[in-house]
């Protein structure tokens, strides 16, 4: 009996302490591993919270999963990078309107030994054709993320179907950007990555940037609120406040200010989105 009371007391205490935590004014943002793991959020969110008094809780997953979280109503804002999927999200009424926020670019990384002879190419399609022809190992996200979608688009533009290399040189690991880079480093393989994650990545070993600067490697990020008419509990006003801040001068300046070793990771373009993506 005593232990029963003790346990009830303990439960009540913990529920209360967690509840106190949840009282804080906050929104939940479903976003991508690239924004989280490149340290962007760590840089800009404290600035927003100081200004608006709203804490931002970021759930960092692949773009596909982030959109799913929004669809289910489990986040207030979705901040991702797969324009086609985002436009479907808006069209089906899950959220919107969508705003451009920033871009960075993808790069193809590969082993210093460069078995496919792609180092220094600017033509991504040609680089992918050479990798496939050499049957050089290539690690793919394989997780419906924005980067995965971009990678598949690049293969289509190269007119190569990498599925034929499955189980051999084409390796889909179904994980985030970091694990892909870890795997590529361990296997001396090529991979497509966003530049931000690459710059923040510490375990490069023999990996180098092989291909960069192609217009097709452009990587646009968009942000949109989850539809409050579909999910009434969504914190629409606070979510919109965050979106408005991201595209405001202050937010855009904060994004531009995030640098790793002097190198800027993301380029704000809310006012002038590139038409190419």
């Amino acid at each position: 009996m005593i232990s029963w009371i003790l346990r009830r007391g303990l439960l009540a205490a913990v529920v209360l302490s967690f509840a106190a935590n949840a009282q804080e004014r906050s929104i939940t943002v479903a976003s991508t591993t690239s924004t989280e793991q490149s340290g962007l959020f760590g840089h800009i969110l404290p600035l927003f919270t100081r200004e608006a008094g709203i804490a931002v809780r970021v759930v960092a997953v692949g773009t596909g999963q982030a959109l799913d979280i929004g669809r289910r109503g489990d986040a207030d804002v979705v901040f991702v990078h797969d324009r086609a999927a985002e436009e479907r999200f808006v069209a089906e009424g899950s959220g919107g309107p969508r705003r451009h926020v920033m871009y960075n670019d993808f790069v193809v990384v590969g082993p210093a030994a460069d078995p496919a002879r792609v180092n220094g190419l600017r033509d991504t399609a040609e680089a992918l054709r050479r990798i496939a022809a050499a049957r050089a190992p290539f690690v793919s996200r394989g997780d419906r993320s924005g980067t995965h979608a971009a990678e598949l688009r690049l293969w289509r533009q190269a007119e190569v179907d990498p599925a034929g290399g499955r189980g051999a040189w084409y390796r889909e690991i179904g994980q985030g950007m970091g694990p892909v880079l870890n795997t590529a480093a361990a296997q001396n393989a090529y991979a497509l990555t966003d530049r931000g994650t690459w710059l923040a990545f510490r375990n490069r070993q023999e990996l180098r940037i092989a291909v960069e600067g192609d217009a097709r490697l452009f990587n646009q990020y968009g942000v949109m609120p989850v539809n409050p008419r579909r999910h009434p509990h969504v914190k629409a006003a606070d979510g919109q406040r965050f979106i408005d801040w991201l595209v405001s001068a202050a937010g855009q300046a904060a994004i531009a200010g995030h640098k790793i070793e002097g190198e800027q990771l993301f380029f704000p373009n809310a006012a002038r989105p590139e038409p190419t993506s």
């Binding site: 939940t28 793991q37 809780r57 694990p179 375990n203």
Partner: peptide
């Protein structure tokens, strides 16, 4: 939990995150 920094990040998810970032 979503591994939200400062809210739902625990030891194991922090370890998974740092592994992802290659900071072994």
């Amino acid at each position: 939990g979503g591994n939200i920094e400062g809210f739902t990040r625990v030891m194991t998810t922090a370890i998974a995150l740092e592994t992802s970032k290659g900071d072994l």
